[in-house]
């Protein structure tokens, strides 16, 4: 049901909006990182590929922000959320805000994030919120392509030269402490799942891990052992050092020229 401020089983509008902001912020912040690859990829063709992925993610974020503004009753628009919130109000995980590394690291990060998103949106397409279900049904096709593209590269890097194999293996070690946060339940995601609006993050881990395991097998890469630490706090607005710099770059123009249009 699409009554503003209330999802079907009475989930508080603010909680519902917070759930959507987590999804939207993941997409927006990762789009910002992927956009940095334009002009820095191995070839111009890959600049375009990563730019296209970033644009898909921005599209998802825009629709999710708009719906969040209806649900929390504030009537905020997509730009209000993306450009005028401060770091502590962003609910994205640490994985997506980490600075760009080498190309192998990006493909490994994208494989984890896109596979997570694909499993997530597959379930959200059955959300009790018709708007969210529609957003997810469109996004699931985009995520499927992102998975294919990242997996194609991970297989080629892992099963490529000695150096590309080593770098891909290092990338898997690097990403390991950050992925747990995607699959951690908090009170907002639990309430969203209970109401039928959302889905439980922890339930996505097994299918995502199985799919990535299959890719790593083909890539002749070793799944990393359990990490000795895990990132946490992103969903509560507690971010790593990189986040402030990312937001400064992302929000600078919108904040310097409030309300500007072109």
């Amino acid at each position: 049901m699409n009554t503003p401020g209330r999802s079907r089983q009475g989930l508080d509008g603010e909680l519902a909006a917070a759930y959507l902001l987590g999804l939207a912020d993941d997409a927006l912040v990762y789009a910002q990182r992927l956009g940095e690859w334009v002009s820095r990829s191995p070839q111009v063709e890959e600049d375009m590929a990563l730019g296209n992925v970033a644009l898909d993610l921005i599209g998802q974020a825009r629709r999710l922000y708009t719906r969040a503004g209806e649900l929390d009753g504030t009537g905020r628009c997509e730009d209000d959320y993306a450009m005028l919130r401060d770091e502590r109000e962003f609910r994205n995980v640490h994985l997506v805000e980490q600075p760009r590394g080498d190309f192998g690291r990006e493909m490994v990060r994208m494989l984890w994030f896109a596979t997570y998103q694909h499993e997530l949106y597959t379930r959200l397409a059955a959300s009790t919120d018709q708007t969210l279900a529609g957003i997810a049904a469109k996004a699931v096709k985009e995520a499927a392509y992102h998975v294919t593209h990242a997996a194609t590269w991970v297989v080629r890097l892992g099963d490529g030269t000695t150096e590309s194999h080593e770098r891909a293996q290092l990338a898997l070690w690097w990403v390991a402490p950050y992925v747990g946060e995607l699959f951690t339940d908090d009170e907002i995601s639990i309430a969203a799942a209970d109401s039928g609006l959302g889905t439980l993050p922890s339930a996505l881990l097994a299918p995502v891990r199985a799919r990535i395991g299959a890719v790593l097998g083909e890539a002749t890469l070793e799944p990393p052992a359990a990490p000795t630490w895990s990132s946490s706090g992103g969903r509560r607005g507690v971010h790593s050092e990189a986040m402030g710099y990312l937001l400064a770059e992302l929000q600078h123009v919108a904040r310097s020229h409030p309300g500007a249009t072109w």
């Binding site: 063709e45 375009m48 590929a49 296209n52 392509y145 294919t148 593209h149 194609t152 590269w153 080629r156």
Partner: peptide, 11 residues
């Protein structure tokens, strides 16, 4: 070939 197809899709 596989990446050529993906690049063609994106370009």
């Amino acid at each position: 070939a596989q990446l050529a197809l993906q690049n063609a899709r994106d370009l």
